[in-house]
């Protein structure tokens, strides 16, 4: 082993992290507030739907996923004061009115025959948008100054990918006929249009494009 007192570079040769990042503290807090608001709306909806779906396997998955999104909301709630927002509720808001309309439309299906619509809204529209927004944030923020956000996003993304796969497989198992495929596609298109209007979970620029 080399002498303990020998000078070493502060960053090892394999550590290529850069200080530069696309987001200020304020912008990071704004995005975190929108993530928290949307994760909250999602866990509340999943919780409410449990009693409305007759399929036992779907019921159990919704219960499991409900907690994961509540935990994501909690992570953002705890991150906000670290970003100088001492009143987290102030930033726990939707990105814009279109996001409110999106959540209203997503949570509209209630009847036991509408499991497909419930799952489409979450697993074919909202969660893919979460994956995109989180990925964009993780890949563009400073790997040194904002590492706590990156760490949270890495945990969250793991859940999002797992849950998306669960949801997509449930959907594939429930869609049996061309009519059901049409129903799923129609509902997805309806919701996607509202999401386009919103510009994504954090509004225009959710994934970089304005």
């Amino acid at each position: 082993m080399a002498q303990a007192s020998k000078a070493r570079a502060p960053f090892a040769p394999w550590d290529r992290r850069e200080i530069a990042g696309a987001f200020s503290v304020e912008e990071t807090a704004r995005r975190a507030g929108h993530y928290k608001w949307t994760e909250m709306k999602l866990f509340e909806a999943l919780g409410g739907w449990i009693a409305t779906v007759p399929e036992l396997d779907v019921k159990m998955r919704l219960g499991t996923h409900c907690y994961k999104h509540a935990w994501h909301a909690e992570l953002w709630h705890k991150r906000l004061p670290e970003l100088r927002e001492m009143n987290p509720d102030r930033l726990t808001v939707p990105a814009n009115d279109a996001m409110v309309r999106f959540i209203d439309a997503m949570t509209e299906p209630e009847a036991p025959e509408q499991t497909i619509e419930k799952l489409v809204g979450v697993y074919r529209v909202l969660i893919p948008h979460f994956i995109s927004a989180y990925t964009y944030h993780m890949n563009n923020t400073s790997e040194i100054t904002d590492m706590p956000t990156i760490r949270s996003i890495k945990f969250i993304l793991q859940d999002e990918f797992d849950d998306w796969r669960d949801g997509e497989m449930l959907l594939q198992s429930l869609i049996d006929t061309p009519e059901e495929a049409d129903r799923a596609a129609a509902h997805q298109a309806r919701l996607e249009k509202i999401m386009v209007e919103a510009g994504g979970i954090t509004g225009p620029g959710s994934i970089g494009f304005q």
């Binding site: 866990f43 509340e44 919780g47 409410g48 739907w49 449990i50 999104h69 935990w71």
Partner: peptide, 28 residues
């Protein structure tokens, strides 16, 4: 029941955020 408690009450006004997080945990 735990799931409905997450949905039925408005966060902050009718039920604290932390209480709803506990209910989501209970749902799991």
């Amino acid at each position: 029941g735990a799931g409905r408690t997450c949905w039925d009450f408005t966060t902050g006004e009718e039920a604290p955020f932390a209480l709803k997080l506990d209910m989501a945990r209970q749902a799991w």
